[in-house]
């Protein structure tokens, strides 16, 4: 906000305007009275006379305008959840609240993010703080914003399962003046700040901006192979031969696979070799205990957990052919 005039002439001007003389980017504040009075002096014979006109008064009505911008530089990486930031600015000349609508469905999206939370940055520190920032429902509204004032909106989104790595998405945030919006010039009688009308400005009192997301996910490829060692030092699948199974779990993509677990059943006609289970070459006990694996006559189960893309884990176990 800045004053419309230099301080030098404020005193003289105060006589001609009542109410706020602060001008916002959108102009004088709604409800300001513009009062115009002319005076005249003239000579008549030797006397000088001064007369004043009546005062004409106009009340400035409220202009409804809004601007929305996305605040993140470039795409925000979405691996699990991510926070998108937007700014909603009251570009009108009166106090106004705005309804906020968030849509993750935007034409051209590689995937549609799941909107989890919409919050207003209550303390305006630019950081989403659960429990501090005010959560609003989709379609809920901001507090009243003064002319030129802005609110930062956080949209917390989650990556839907199965999203391909590096696919792109946009999330649209729309802000709409609560008093009303529509074709510029549409007016709402008596609903303006200061008792005048509210009139839709050039922005239609409805604006939106897109925030961009880039999915960061990973997928797993399992490769199973086996090697046979028969009792005669050969590789024939004969009874008594030992079969070593190798399962390689390879993660690819920019993200991380979570809760990866490798399970397999012991093939029919074979018997699991006790304590033969390994992970990355290290032995795992058969019992369910502190290590990652369990094994029994029916199958094996190895909990690998998180595995970043580009990494792999190898599980082996042995059986004998009956």
């Amino acid at each position: 906000m800045k004053n419309a005039r230099t301080p030098l002439v404020l005193g003289a001007l105060a006589a001609t305007a009542i109410g706020s003389t602060q001008a916002s980017a959108a102009g004088v504040t709604a409800g300001t009275l513009i009062q115009n009075t002319a005076s005249a002096s003239y000579g008549s014979g030797s006397a000088t006379t001064t007369v004043s006109s009546n005062t004409v008064t106009i009340r400035v009505d409220e202009l409804l305008d809004v601007a929305v911008s996305a605040l993140d530089a470039g795409s925000v990486t979405l691996a699990d959840t991510a926070v998108l930031s937007y700014r909603v600015t009251n570009s009108g000349n009166g106090n106004e609240a705005f309804a906020i609508n968030v849509s993750p469905t935007v034409s051209g999206n590689g995937f549609d993010a799941a909107v989890q939370t919409i919050a207003i940055d209550t303390n305006d520190n630019g950081i989403y703080e659960p429990g501090i920032d005010t959560v609003i429902t989709n379609g809920g509204s901001t507090a009243e914003l003064a002319p030129d004032a802005a609110a930062r909106i956080f949209v917390i989104v989650a990556l839907p399962g199965g999203t391909a790595d590096a696919s792109a998405s946009q999330v649209r945030v729309t802000a709409q003046a609560l008093t009303g919006s529509g074709t510029p010039g549409t007016s709402f009688a008596g609903q303006g700040q200061g008792g005048g009308d509210a009139v839709v400005g050039a922005t239609t009192a409805n604006a939106n901006a897109l925030g961009a997301l880039l999915a960061s996910s990973a997928s797993v490829t399992l490769t199973k192979s086996f090697a046979i060692l028969d009792p005669f030092g050969g590789a024939k699948p004969v009874p008594g031969a030992t079969v070593t199974f190798t399962i390689q779990a390879a993660a690819s993509g920019s993200g991380t696979v979570s809760d990866l677990r490798v399970t397999d059943v012991i093939p029919a006609g074979t018997t699991y070799v006790a304590n033969s289970l390994t992970l990355e070459g290290a032995a795992l006990s058969d019992a369910a205990d502190s290590d990652a694996g369990t094994a029994s006559a029916s199958g094996i189960d190895v909990a690998i957990g998180a595995l970043p893309g580009g990494n792999s884990r190898t599980v082996t176990f042995k059986t004998t052919i009956n």
Binding site: A4, T16, V28, I34, Q35, A38, G43, S44
Partner: peptide, 19 residues
């Protein structure tokens, strides 16, 4: 509205702050 002519007639209008 008078019966005499007036001269040196000067109309002064302070410009409202809001315009």
């Amino acid at each position: 509205a008078g019966t005499q002519p007036v001269d040196n007639f000067v109309v002064t209008n302070p410009v409202p702050d809001a315009v």
